[in-house]
Design a protein around this nucleic acid. Structure first.
Lengths: 212, 212
DNA sequence: AATTACAGAGAACAGTTGTTAACTGCATGG
DNA sequence: CCATGCAGTTAACAACTGTTCTCTGTAATT
């Protein structure tokens, strides 16, 4: 499947990844629209002009970051929302997955939450497209559930979007809890999980009675 | 109630407002963290140093913008979520109010959506505080509704947050529709309204069956 | 073994930035 | 009416920005 890269290409990808990592780090305290190309290269320890060998601009780098942050998430979503187990079990599993993901990739989560409505159009569009894909996938999983019998395609999609937005909000709240003072962290995390669980439960109830 | 300002104070407030307006305009195409103070003063036609007579920094200006964008919105929220009319009527009224508000103050809405998770901490906090106030107020209105009989305070607040977040997402979607090409605008607006209405309806259904 | 392709370095450019200091003019309060 | 306060100006600063052109070393190709 994968072709072994030459020394040349391998080194190039290494610097490219270093640029992405450095940018992600710098973006913890600012938005993409204020991220300077020199700032990034300085953090990596490479000449400013080297940047152009990998990206046309910081906006271009931002789009690559969207791919890195969301591109590999699709299978995870699919399997999590999948229809095994009862609804309460599915909710617990989903919330836990979100918490774990935020824990593992806080900078990626922050980046997406920040730039979803951020000041750089191409990045906003890239995020919007990925989220729309997520919604589609969630819709497909929902459709398999017997509870969805009799639902129109439109209604399935509107519910899927509700779920996706809810998951993003929850992720952002987990992140805030994570960034706060250490001693409050555990309690705040528990609180976020509890609230999010009940919100999902309420949405699930609405779903059950949709066709009344 | 209001004291007539002297010529001096009046002129000062005028330039201050001009700075806020100019900033809001410039923020349509970038984030606050990349907004330069010189950029703002240049747009107003005033010396860069004049900026310091009104704000300590652009972050400070951002906090003032939060106040301007959300501060005056509380009475509106209260009356809209108030318990007159049946639930379907209330939903229609709310969605229409959001659409009208986005139409009247698109730049404010964009600013809030953008900076809620933006790169400037004090601004994020100011927005978070205002939204928490909104949630409290929505909770108070929900508590008056007979449907809320038997609900715990915590559950009322979690529902209120769900509503507030939903309203913000809807506002942001209306804004996107508004920014798109003129010919698609009407249809996209209608579509956003339709989806948002059904999501609110579904949440309302979940609310009705919460105590089952 | 000779040639090419190309990732990265280096230097220089014109513009921009936030912040400081010392100033000017005028509305205000005594 | 005069002295003070203060919104806004002017000038200058060191530091920073994105982008260009030229160059170098070396991996890859022939």
């Amino acid at each position: 499947m994968s072709h072994t890269l030459g020394i040349r290409q391998a080194q190039k990808q290494k610097t490219r990844q270093a640029l992405l990592d450095a940018a992600l780090g710098l973006l913890e305290e600012q938005s993409l629209s204020s991220l300077g190309l020199r700032e990034v290269t300085r953090a990596v320890g490479v000449a400013p002009t080297a940047f152009y060998r990998h990206f046309r601009s910081t906006a271009d780098l931002g789009v690559a970051l969207v791919e890195e942050a969301l591109g590999s998430l699709h299978p995870m979503i699919r399997t999590t929302v999948s229809t095994t187990g009862d609804s309460e079990e599915r909710i617990t599993r989903t919330i836990e997955l979100i918490a774990r993901h935020v824990d593992g990739y806080p900078a990626h989560v922050r980046f997406i939450a920040r730039e979803r409505h951020g000041g750089v159009q191409p990045v906003r569009e890239a995020i919007r497209d990925q989220l729309a894909r997520f919604a589609q996938e969630v819709k497909d999983e929902l459709a398999k559930d017997p509870v969805s019998a009799g639902w129109s395609e439109d209604d399935l999609l509107m519910l899927a979007h509700l779920y996706v937005d809810q998951m993003l909000i929850t992720a952002s709240l987990f992140l805030e809890a994570l960034e706060g003072p250490e001693q409050e962290r555990e309690e705040r995390t528990r609180h976020v999980a509890q609230v999010a669980t009940r919100q999902m439960r309420l949405i699930g109830l609405g779903r059950l009675h949709w066709l009344d």
